[in-house]
């Protein structure tokens, strides 16, 4: 009886907390839990066969809507392996070396990710996947991410000890994050929940400073770097898979700054010829060119489904053909 009463009270209290935090605008998220690697490892394990795999950084994680893809292609396994803040080529290399994978990789890139210093950025995630033990992996059926993806009150920032300290110090209760990550690892950015002007200024300054501090490789040097990854692409294609490089939307000053350091004609436009695969730049098609990133770098959650649908419309002829089918429109490299 004591335990039944305790369980009942605990369930009631948890439900009350959930209702309370949701009423204050909080949504479930797996972000900021310090355990971002585990869901990635779990997702990576599903990237086999002819799966459709999204590889990239936060721009892809926020801009590509998994739900929209699943509605369009209900029979196709969709795997989101994008990692916020980390250039993606280590994951591409890993998939290239995986004989069980012969699917499609939608790889979100910008020119600097091909530089040698960026190649291992996601290697920590890849290593975690390969170092997981088969038996241990099978046993570690961690239910926590499943609950975190469904309960707003399980965010670390809403941890009761932390909230209690805040209350004791008469601090305001935590406000909702404008960025949340769903259970399928897709990112939801709600710019209406933050000060967009401030964020835009910070983002532009960060981009400007980041590029100013880089040693920009000459186009020739960069081309050499790109050629280094071509064997990975060929390996995937040899198994019947394919790679598509996509430039996800950016806006305003962000476009101007990146164009200044990495002129499109010298870098992006050469990518298709250098790699021999399809590339798509969001600005090249009216269906995707009109989207605006409020912070200049990421799409708002409300635009992500429409952008994804538009992108899939553009890619559909390519996706319908086999990897070696050159007849499908639109033309390569545009």
């Amino acid at each position: 009886m004591i335990w039944l009463a305790a369980l009942g009270l605990a369930v009631a209290a948890s439900a009350g907390l959930e209702v309370f935090w949701r009423s204050r605008g909080h949504r479930p998220t797996t972000n900021g839990t310090g355990t971002e690697v585990e869901p990635w490892v779990e997702a990576r394990a599903r990237a086999t066969g002819d799966a459709f795999v999204l590889v990239g950084q936060s721009r892809a994680q926020a801009g590509f809507c998994g739900e929209t893809f699943r509605q369009r292609c209900p029979d196709q396994e969709f795997v989101n392996l994008a990692v916020s803040g980390l250039p993606p080529l280590a994951t591409l290399r890993d998939l290239a070396g995986d004989d069980d994978f012969h699917g499609t990789i939608l790889c979100s890139v910008v020119p600097h990710v091909f530089e040698p210093s960026e190649l291992d950025a996601q290697q920590e995630y890849v290593d975690a996947y390969h170092h997981r033990d088969a038996l241990a992996g099978w046993l570690e059926l961690d239910l926590a991410p499943w609950f975190r993806a469904r309960m707003a009150s399980l965010q670390p920032k809403l941890a009761l000890p932390r909230v209690a300290i805040d209350l004791a110090l008469r601090r305001p209760l935590p406000t909702p994050d404008y960025v949340t990550v769903n259970g399928d690892r897709s990112m939801v950015i709600d710019f209406s929940a933050t000060d967009v002007e401030r964020l835009r200024t910070w983002r532009i300054e960060r981009t400007r400073r980041g590029l100013a501090n880089r040693t920009i490789p000459s186009p020739a040097r960069w081309a050499e770097d790109v050629r280094d990854i071509v064997p990975w692409i060929r390996a995937i294609e040899a198994r019947g898979g394919r790679v598509i490089f996509v430039r996800f939307p950016t806006s305003g000053e962000h476009v101007a700054i990146t164009e200044h350091y990495y002129p499109r004609a010298d870098y992006w436009d050469r990518l298709a010829d250098l790699t021999g695969v399809r590339t798509f730049h969001f600005a090249d098609d009216p269906r995707t060119a009109h989207f605006v990133c409020p912070d200049t770098s990421h799409l708002d959650w409300s635009d992500a489904p429409r952008f994804t649908a538009a992108l899939l419309d553009v890619l559909e002829p390519w996706l319908a053909g086999s990897s070696g089918d050159e007849s499908a429109a639109p033309p390569r490299g545009r």
């Binding site: 605990a10 209290a13 310090g34 965010q155 941890a159």
Partner: peptide
């Protein structure tokens, strides 16, 4: 017991 349970459940963070 219910207080302990609620606190354990609602103290997520690094495992």
């Amino acid at each position: 017991a219910s207080c302990l349970l609620v606190l354990v459940i609602h103290s997520p963070g690094d495992q």
